[in-house]
Write a protein that binds this DNA or RNA. Structure first.
Lengths: 200, 200
DNA sequence: ATCTCTATTAAACACTGTTCATCATAATTA
DNA sequence: TAATTATGATGAACAGTGTTTAATAGAGAT
């Protein structure tokens, strides 16, 4: 069989990306493989390599959807909030989403480049957008601060929140019993911002 | 060939763990595999399964060495330092080590359980030690704070630092150009602690 | 010298990611 | 309508993974 022409290249790509997320959520992130994705959409594995560079490219593009959905959600959720409140809302919502549909985020957090290749720049740009959202709020919060300080603080606070989310999703944080992750994030954001604002 | 009896079980385990770290540093973390490790120490792959449960167990035990070395280093480096200084020193040193011999830490940061199994408790205990070190300093810093608050703050600050180290080692932080990771960690620790101390 | 026991192996199984010659069939041309 | 071209899709193959297990080489005991 060949030359079915049932779908355009774009449709096929969308189908494959859907399949990645479906498999990750249904069977776990470890189950995602070229053969499994191909099977899920009713094609041969080789076909995927006409659409994607390799399996990393495929998974990275699927993860972009997850991050993109997050970005949209954060923008929506922080409309008409004060800057302080907005940063905390974003952080908590990041954690909440990560914990809610955990497997989809496991795919994001636990994925590593198969051949040690560097993460492509278009993917980094996506996460840069997240930093950007935080920067926006920090500018509103402290308009007098220099741009470089805003950038630094945004990266600091978001890396920190990311650290908590990551350890939470990968189950490496349950070491002392009754410490809720949400309280960690709250403490982190509030105390950091409190300190940051009072300096300089 | 069989029954060489050149090494005891303990010696063999040590050899294998050494080999994991050597391969990770020499050829990159992705190259670490059962066959490669076996070849490195001159044995058949199957032999490893008499010493370790599976490849995750092997790598986890190797990573324990890395973490253990870190713990010792942090204890040594913070002798006779004030509490404030000690926390910052630990954080910066964590980052420094992670960046210095990056591949060894890549093995730590980028490893994920092959079958989605939970991280074993003896491994979590190791990272709990790190939290413990921070807790010690926080107690010295604010003896009046409740134990649960100390625990929470220690987890928060260490998760945050971990987040920066992770994003740095995996190359996901170079999004805005001239922001040095060390300054991120500094800002994070100092501002968080400043805020934390001033509250309650 | 024989026997026992076991540390070690080689081979096999079921998976990966990836490439590529081949072919069926849609689209184009005659 | 018939022949031709172009290409979407395949299936088989290659090299690698983790893991299991029956077979065995050889050290130590008899």
């Amino acid at each position: 069989m060949a030359r079915r022409n049932e779908h355009t290249k774009g449709e096929l790509k969308a189908l494959a990306l859907d399949a990645v997320l479906v498999i990750a959520e249904r069977d776990g992130p470890q189950v995602v493989s070229a053969r499994k994705v191909a099977q899920e959409i009713g094609y041969a594995p080789g076909m995927l390599y006409h659409l994607f560079e390799n399996i990393d490219d495929l998974i990275l593009q699927a993860n972009t959807r997850t991050v993109s959905a997050l970005t949209d959600d954060l923008v929506r959720a922080t409309k008409r909030q004060s800057a302080d409140k907005a940063v905390l809302t974003m952080a908590l919502r990041y954690l909440q989403l990560a914990q809610k549909n955990g497997r989809r985020w496991q795919l994001l957090f636990e994925h590593t480049m198969r051949n040690g290749v560097a993460v492509p720049s278009w993917y980094q740009a996506q996460t840069a957008k997240l930093f950007g959202l935080v920067e926006q709020q920090l500018v509103r919060m402290c308009p007098q601060k220099k741009s470089v300080e805003i950038q630094l603080a945004a990266r600091a606070v978001w890396s920190a929140v990311h650290g908590v989310c990551l350890l939470s999703v990968t189950g490496k944080l349950n070491v002392g019993g009754a410490v809720k992750e949400a309280r960690l994030v709250e403490s982190l954001v509030q105390n950091y911002l409190h300190g940051w604002k009072s300096i300089d």
